[in-house]
Simulated scan of single mutants.
Amino acid sequence: MPDKKTTRLPIIKINGNISQNDPDLVVRETPLTIFLNGAEFVTLVCSPANLYELALGFLCSEGILQHKKDLKKVALEEEKGIIQIETAKPVIEEEYFMRRYITSCCGKGRSSFYFINDARGTKTVTGNISISIKEIKNLIMELETRAKIFQTTGGTHGAGLCTPKEMLLFFEDIGRHNAVDKLFGRSFLDELQLEDKIIVFSGRVSSEILIKVAKIGIPIIISRSAPTDLAVKIATELGITVIGFARGDRMNIYTHTNRVKI
């Protein structure tokens, strides 16, 4: 049934030589504009749910919020697609927010493009955690089971925050970055420790996703999809275990295999 995350639209379905009018459930998409300390900061295109978590998680992954004491006030105007966030201290100037520059990755001489804010707060992840092949398979099965919107629309990505034994949080969104940010936002609000946690993910592990994970300090990311070469390079240097193509009995372990009990 439709809810605020989905809508039913009239479509024509084609199956071979047969066509028929048959309404279909389609995932909803909406803009959310973040105003930071009274100034328009950024607009995210997202699924219209868990908007508090999305906005706060986005600011966490950008290094603007690090501790709950950094947050002064949040006011969501859902009908207008606006969220007002006030921080306890001044933050990075907006003019620098999306500026690109070239830097040497992790001091090892590799030149890579980053947003200027990506260079802030990124450090080697040293979380002491391990996971077995069986536990990886169980977490991927849980990810698939919880992805209810994807099951009915095929239009979302899912992300779960886990221990090796269980999934603690799960969110879906039309954007894979958004799904991860919603995890971060809820973890921020609940003041969860993340150094011993795992992210299980449905989407491609790009360099942007990897950097988000590094900033938060999570040591393992498991995905049903592929990583990019730059994500693997960064993960190698920052101490993050990347597991991709985790489907059924198959998976690829790309980096820091010492955390996987084989």
Rank of each mutant, 00 (worst) to 15 (best):
D3A: 10
K4E: 12
K5M: 07
T7A: 10
I12R: 12
G16L: 01
G16A: 05
N17D: 08
S19G: 07
N21H: 11
P23L: 05
D24I: 04
V27L: 04
P31S: 07
I34M: 07
N37P: 00
N37Y: 00
G38T: 05
G38W: 04
G38D: 07
S47Q: 15
P48M: 13
N50Y: 13
L51V: 10
Y52E: 14
G57M: 09
C60K: 11
E62N: 15
G63P: 11
I64A: 08
L71G: 10
L71P: 14
L76K: 03
E77N: 14
E79C: 08
E79W: 08
K80G: 07
I82P: 00
I82Y: 15
I83Y: 00
I85Q: 14
I85D: 09
T87V: 12
I92Y: 12
E95R: 15
I102D: 11
C105I: 15
S111T: 12
S111G: 11
F113V: 15
F113L: 15
F115Y: 15
N117R: 14
A119F: 07
A119I: 07
R120S: 10
R120I: 13
T126H: 10
I131A: 01
I131H: 07
I131N: 04
S132N: 12
S132E: 10
E135Y: 05
K137P: 03
N138P: 02
I140C: 14
I140N: 01
M141C: 04
M141Q: 11
L143V: 06
L143I: 03
T145V: 01
I149H: 02
T152G: 00
T153D: 09
G154F: 08
A159W: 02
G160C: 15
G160K: 07
C162I: 00
E166R: 11
F170K: 08
E172T: 12
I174C: 10
R176Y: 13
V180F: 01
K182C: 08
L183F: 05
F184T: 02
F184Y: 11
R186H: 12
F188T: 10
F188W: 12
F188K: 13
L189T: 14
L192V: 06
K197Q: 12
I199C: 07
I199Q: 06
V205E: 11
S206M: 05
S207C: 10
E208F: 14
L210G: 04
P219S: 08
P219E: 01
P219H: 04
I222S: 04
S225Y: 02
T228W: 06
D229I: 06
K233G: 11
I234V: 06
A235H: 06
G239R: 03
G239M: 00
I243A: 02
G244K: 09
A246F: 00
R247Y: 03
D249Q: 08
R250Y: 10
N252L: 11
Y254L: 11
R259W: 12
V260Y: 09
K261G: 01
